[in-house]
Structure formats: C-alpha cells, structure tokens
Write a protein that binds this DNA or RNA. Structure first.
Lengths: 231, 231
DNA sequence: AAATCAAATCTCGTATACAATTTTATCGCT
DNA sequence: AGCGATAAAATTGTATACGAGATTTGATTT
C-alpha cells in the first residue's frame, strides 16, 4: 500500500508491468531466478516484491511451488468485480462532494479527450484515458485508504479487464464505456453523489458482464487471434 | 490476504499479536534481529512477515530505518475510520441480504451473550463478542474480497481502537456500543440492507469520535494508569 | 554544564549458500 | 507407442554474510 522501500517500489512496478502489459497471463509462472537476472538484482528483492504483489492479490504464492499470476474462477471474479464496483462507487460519491475545481476541470478535459479518441477509434488513447478517468475519481475521493484500496482492486483484475482489450484484433465498441464515463462524470460535476455512486457500480458491473463473455469454461481469456487462426 | 505460505502465516500472526495485545504500541520499533531470536528463526522470514504487515497498513517500513508500528496523525486516522465505516457498511448491507439461517441464529446468540456481558460488566467478554459480531457480518457478506478488506482495515486501526480499551483502569460505558450493535443486528435480521449499512457507518463513526477524545495532540493514546500515576 | 562533532556500534538491504521439495528428463516395461 | 518409476535438474524457503547508511556514545570545545 503506502510502504516506502528503496528500489523495491520500482521493482514491484516492473514486475506488475509484466502482467499489465500482458506478457504474463493468469496462471503463468514467475521464476525468481530468471526475474532476478532480468532485472539485475538478487533473488531477495525479487522475492520481496512478489510477496507484496501477492498480498495485493495480483499474484498467488503457493508453498514450495512457483508463484503464478493469480487465476480467478467464475465465482472469485464475480466477487472481485462486485467489490471493485462498490469501492469505485464510494470513490465516485466522495469525489462528487470533495473534488477541487482544478480536479473538475481535469475531469472535463479527460472526458473530452476520451470522446475524441472514441470517435477516432484510437484504442490506445481510449485505454489510457479510461485509466486516468478512474484515477481522478480515486484521488478526488480525498481518502488515501479508499484510493489505495480501489487501485489495488483494479490492479488485481487487470489481467482480466485491461490486458485482453489491448489485443490488436479485438474490436469492442469504444462508445459504450465512454458514454458511461460521461454520465458518471456529469453526476460528479453536478455534485450528485448518489447518482455518481449508482452509475459507477453499474459501469463496473457492465464491464464485468462484458468480460465474462470473453471467458471460456476454464476461466481463461479466449485467445482471439492466435487460437482462432490455428483452429 | 489469501496468500498461503508455509509457516509465514503463523509468524505474521505472532507479530501482529504483539500489536493487538498492546505489547507494542504505535511508534514502537520492531527490530528484525530480536524478533528473529525471539521466534527462533532467521531474519529472512521475519522480514517477509513484516513486509506483509506493512502492506496491510499495520506496520510502517521506512527505508534504512527500523520498522515501527504505524502511527496515524489525526487526518490519517479520520480517513482510516471513514474507509472502515464504508466497508463495514457494505458488509452489513450484503449480510442483511445474504446471510444463511445458521448465520442469523449465530448473530442472535452473539447479541444475547453480548447483552449479558454488558449487564455483568464483563469487559473481556464484551470485547470478544464485539469482534465476533463484526466477523459474522464480514463473512455474511459472502464476498471474500470485501471480507478480507474489512478485516485488514479493522486490524490496522486496532492499536487505536481495541488495545486501549482493554486497559484495566478504563471504564467506558459498555452499553453504548452494545445498543448500536443491537440496532444493526435487528436491521440485518429483518433484511433491511439500507438501514444496516447506515447504522453501521454511524456506529463506526461514533467509535472514531470516542477514540479521538482519547488522543492527545501528538496523536498518542493517552496513558491512563501509568502516566497519571507518575504525574 | 550544554552543545557539537567524530568514532564506534548497530540495523537494514541485498547477495550468496545450502537443504528440502518439486519439476523435468531418462529409462524400462507392458 | 504409451505409461510408470527412478534419477537428475531446477526452484523454493531459510540461513548466513557483508557493505551502506543510521544511531548512539563519548570526547572536545565553548
């Protein structure tokens, strides 16, 4: 959460980036030795970073067996998204009441930029603006505990939400999430905390339902390009 | 959270017990070497346990300086309790909708036992039943993420909420929290999720206000027996 | 006597070593 | 060819070693 080690922080980010970027997917193993060599440190700091990422639910450390990127079964994923929705809902409702004028201007900017990216079909930009939209609300809640909790929960479902959507061949409608963000943003700017909360919960829930359709029976993300080409 | 190491789990508990029991108070240092000798292991597993407890917010690891039991200033404590109230509120509202009949019977039992302990002035029993009441609701929410989050948040404010109240010389009115629990329990049993949530948020907030009065300017818990005897 | 600065001691962060267990590869058998 | 058992290799969990930075101690000065 808000620890504060030396270079452990950046190591944690480097490792979590492996997952966020999609290089490692749920179930993939993280070999301490290889990671140590890759990042030019010994196993000790690697292990500490892995330990923290396991605490936050992104990785899964199993005794005497390799750490893997955490896999969610259907029930666990439902719980993770339900909790995420509630926390994000809380952040949105507090943000509606507490955000500064500067925050509000920034929120408007992001929504405008998001609309442009959406119209242009710029998936990379839309993806980054999506993340920024949520970050603004986390920070706008003016509660570091809620903020950290929201970010941690978001990170842990990243392999199931963000990563698969970045695949080149995936063509989801960018306008659906954008319109939801727009409605949430409007409620926040109008200081309507109840509406902001409800819309956010609905937004996360929709996101979950969308993702659920991408999952096969094993809880694996369907490989679009690769698996379909081969099959 | 739901890691799953070998004996690291029990080590984590042993160390967190030092704080829960009040042996170590906010700001106290945790020396890795001493803990290693005390628990008969090397520094490595101690360090791993400390790392996890820092992630959960109970301890504070500062680069190149001793780990200490986390200290909250007034603002941070307010945020911690605000977040705790919201999460506990969510748990209570879900519990109202999802708890099994067996859970509900257990909840009634705990409330009855609590009333007895309250009437008899049995502070130890009242304290344990208080914890059990909250645990029932965490589990009753039927969401492991919310449950783990609530328990983690509760643990991190323990040095400020539970520990000081156990002091022998401290005579708070046991009936106030009991009546609040009673009202929350009633709402849960009647499946009134909105009421359960609101009452829980209020309950945690009251708890915070009560604790705030025990704090001096430095954010330290007032020493009742010791400091007053010496002064 | 109080304050200041330097040396010595202590503690942490990381690297390395080694035993225990798991995983992988090899070989033999049906 | 496929399956099972055994041996080799690899990986984890913990202990130990050591350098860098922090803390304490003590001497020196004002």
């Amino acid at each position: 959460m808000e620890a504060g080690e030396l270079k452990n922080n950046t190591l944690r980010q480097k490792i979590s980036n492996l997952i966020v970027s999609g290089e490692l997917r749920p179930g993939d193993r993280l070999d301490e030795q290889s990671l140590a060599e890759r990042f030019g440190v010994s196993r000790t700091p690697i292990r500490e970073a892995i330990l923290q990422l396991s605490s936050s639910g992104l990785l899964e450390m199993r005794p005497r067996r390799s750490t893997i990127v955490r896999r969610f079964n259907a029930a666990a994923l439902r719980e993770a998204f339900e909790a995420l929705g509630e926390i994000e809902g809380l952040c949105a409702s507090y943000a509606a009441l507490r955000m500064s004028e500067a925050d509000r201007l920034r929120l408007e900017d992001v929504l405008l930029a998001s609309e442009v990216a959406c119209r242009d079909g710029d998936r990379t930009a839309a993806f980054e603006l999506d993340a920024e939209f949520h970050e603004i609300l986390h920070e706008g809640a003016r509660n570091h505990v809620l903020q950290a909790t929201a970010e941690s929960m978001r990170l842990r479902v990243t392999p199931y939400s963000a990563a698969p959507l970045l695949a080149e061949d995936f063509h989801a409608d960018l306008s659906v999430p954008h319109l939801e963000h727009s409605a949430i943003g409007k409620a926040v700017l109008e200081r309507d905390s109840d509406a902001a909360r409800k819309l956010m919960i609905k937004h996360v829930s929709n996101n979950f339902l969308f993702i659920q359709n991408l999952l096969n029976n094993d809880g694996e993300i369907e490989q679009r390009s690769a698996s379909r080409a081969k099959a």
